[in-house]
Amino acid sequence: MSDGPRAAPHRFFQHPTRHLLGVQGMHPTRIEPFLDLAESYALMNRSRKTPRDLLRGRTVINLFFEDSTRTRTSFELAGKRLGADVVNMTVASSSVNKGETLLDTATTLNAMRTDLLVVRHAQSGAPALLAQKVEASVVNAGDGTHEHPTQALLDALTIRRHFGGLHGLTVAICGDVSHSRVARSNIHLLTAMGAKVRVVGPPTLIPGAIGALGVDVHYTMEEGLRDVDVVMMLRMQRERMTGGQVPSAREYFRFYGLDRRRLAVARPGALVMHPGPMNRGVEIDSRVADSDQSVIREQVEMGVAVRMAVLDLLSRAGEPT
C-alpha cells in the first residue's frame, strides 16, 4: 500500500546525516519527526497496512556482533514491513582481531551494495568506526556502553502515548547505569525533550560524572522513585553481581529491585518500563512487571514502529527534498 497514511510534514523532513549513531546532541526538532512518523507506523502495524513497497529493492543488513534476538527481530520486522530485503548477519565477536573483522566486513558490505546497515557491537564507538568506511546508512543498534538510540526513541514514544508529551515529566532510570547504553541514550533524549531525569542505583553502578549529563542522582529507590511519572528499570547483568560491583543478587533485589511497595512512592499510575529481557526477581518483581502499570509489552510494539521510522527516514536522508 504505497499510498498508505503518512503524516504530511515528514515528506519534507530530512534527517541531517545518513546515520543514526546516537542521541547525544540531537535537537528536539530532529527527534520529533522520528516519534511522529513512528506513531503513524504504530497505527499501520495494528491495522496490518504498511507501505510494503516503500523500501522495495533496498537491502537492510542486520550486522550483529553481539547476540540479541529481540532487537534483531524488531529491526527485521521493521524492514520487512516496509518491503526491504532484510538479511541477518551474526558475527562471532570472540576473535581477537575484532576491528580488522569490522573494517573487512565494511568492505564486503560495500561490495554487496547495502543500503541500510543495522549494527550491534560490544565496543563503544564501533558503529561510528564502521560508518566512516561503509557507503550504507548506519543505524546503531547498541554499542558497548555508549548508546542505543532506537531504544531511547521507542521508550520516548511509549511515554508520549501515555502522557501526550515528555516535557515536565519526571523519569527515574534505575539500576546499572554505568554499563548501560540504554540509560545514556535515554538520558540524552529525555533531557533534550524537557523531561527531568533521575538515576537511581548503588554508587558502584552510577558513574561519578553522570550529573554532568543533567540528571539527579539517588542511591535509594525510596528517594529516587518519589513522585516520578515513569520508572525505567535497567537490565542487571548477572556478571556484575559476581564481579564485585554488587555483592549478590539477593542483596541487589533487596535494595534496588522494583516491587509494589517501592512503586507506591511514585505518582499514582506511574508507568513501569524495562528494555528487556527482564531478570524477574533480580531487578523487578513479577507482580510489578505484569501489572497494569507496566508498559513493557507496548515498548516492544513501539520498537518495531520506531525502527520502521528510522529505516524510512534514513533511507531518504540522501534524497533531494
Binding site: S124, G125, G144, T145, H146, R184, P207, A209, A212, L213
Partner: peptide, 13 residues
Amino acid sequence: TDGELATRLGLPG
C-alpha cells in the same frame, strides 16, 4: 580518564 567525557562516550574510565 574517568569523567564526563568517558561517561558520555561509554568508555571504561
